[in-house]
């Protein structure tokens, strides 16, 4: 199988700002990022971690101080790549006097596109076709976000940068935006999402990177990063000691009302244990998987591993 090409590749990308109090600060420090084509990539980090700075560097809005970066195979700063990418900034503001349709016409004109049918089709896609004659000032936050996504689709981009696409939206708008992002992947686009909405990211992203204080602390497939959850199994008809004697690693056994509770990792061979319990005339009362959540991983990464000490990138890659 042909290996997937990189939509984004950075090597030691660094951005430094001068502060009167702290001197030079590496807002983004030696960033090694790898985003494959056709995936939804979550770029996570607390406020001030360097997410937006990274996006701005990749879009050539600001300039890196060191390192290299490639977007769709072209070095950052190459304007030709801007025909193939799009960007929706965090809390976007669009010219309020324009209608949704006029806004699309304006952004399309920057590409030299003038296709009324395309504008209507895109407004239909983001479910704004009934509101295309309303001015942006009459749009709700969710509608503004959707018109932002419509303008980002004008050039049929291969790669989309979405900065906090669901920030400050209500649950219905959340779901609408999430469905749209998923449709972008189905259309073969690469989507690079910077977000705080971890539950959202967990639902839609293929791979993520967690950046903290300008340094990538973790990067990899979501399924690999979230491996290592726990399982709680409640048994009847066996004793606490009997279970302990089975010698399961990283497990806790205690007697509770109605049975004995075993708390173990999902990597342990639960099936063999269940078989043994049954052959010993025991009974399984319940099995409750406690899956590792992205939120736990995020908090653990940000709080337990101070960025200064963890300059070395921890990369978890699963087999393709």
């Amino acid at each position: 199988m042909r290996p997937l090409a990189a939509a984004i590749e950075t090597k030691q990308l660094t951005k430094t700002y001068k502060s009167r109090i702290h001197g030079k600060i590496n807002v983004v420090d030696s960033l090694d990022l790898h985003v494959e084509e056709g995936e939804i990539f979550g770029f996570l980090g607390p406020n001030g971690a360097g997410k937006t700075t990274t996006i701005k560097m990749l879009l050539s809005i600001i300039y890196p101080d060191a390192g290299e970066g490639y977007v769709l195979g072209k070095e950052i700063g190459d304007m030709s790549v801007h025909r193939l990418i799009s960007y929706v900034p965090e809390r976007p503001y669009y010219y309020e006097h324009m209608t949704g349709l006029e806004l699309l016409k304006f952004y399309a004109s920057l590409f030299g596109i003038n296709d009324q049918a395309l504008f209507v089709r895109l407004l239909e896609k983001v479910n704004l076709h009934r509101d295309m004659s309303k001015t942006i000032s009459q749009y709700s936050k969710g509608m503004q976000q959707r018109v932002g996504l419509a303008q980002a689709l004008l050039n049929d981009p291969k790669l989309m940068f979405l900065d906090e696409p669901t920030g400050g939206l209500d649950p219905i708008a959340h779901r609408e935006i999430r469905d749209l992002i998923l449709s972008f992947r189905e259309e073969g686009r690469t989507v690079f999402i910077s977000s705080h909405e971890l539950s959202e990211v967990e639902l839609i992203c293929d791979r993520v990177a967690i950046i903290n204080k300008g340094v990538i602390a973790r990067q990899g497939k979501l399924t690999d990063l979230l491996r290592g959850g726990r399982v709680e199994v409640t048994f009847e008809g066996v004793t606490e000691q009997w279970l302990k004697d089975k010698g399961m690693q990283d497990s806790h056994v205690r007697t509770i009302a109605g049975g004995v509770l075993l708390d173990t990792t999902e990597e342990e061979d639960i099936n063999s244990l269940i078989d043994a319990v049954r052959s010993n005339s025991g009974r399984i009362v319940s099995i409750v998987p406690r899956r590792k959540r992205l939120e736990d991983l995020f908090i653990q990464t940000v709080t337990d591993a101070p960025a200064q000490a963890a300059k070395k990138t921890i990369t978890v890659e699963g087999a393709n």
């Binding site: 879009l59 801007h82 669009y94």
Partner: peptide, 13 residues
């Protein structure tokens, strides 16, 4: 207002 970011992310010098 960050309108410049959307514009400069397009092929506009």
């Amino acid at each position: 207002r960050r309108t410049i970011y959307t514009i400069l992310s397009k092929p506009v010098q």
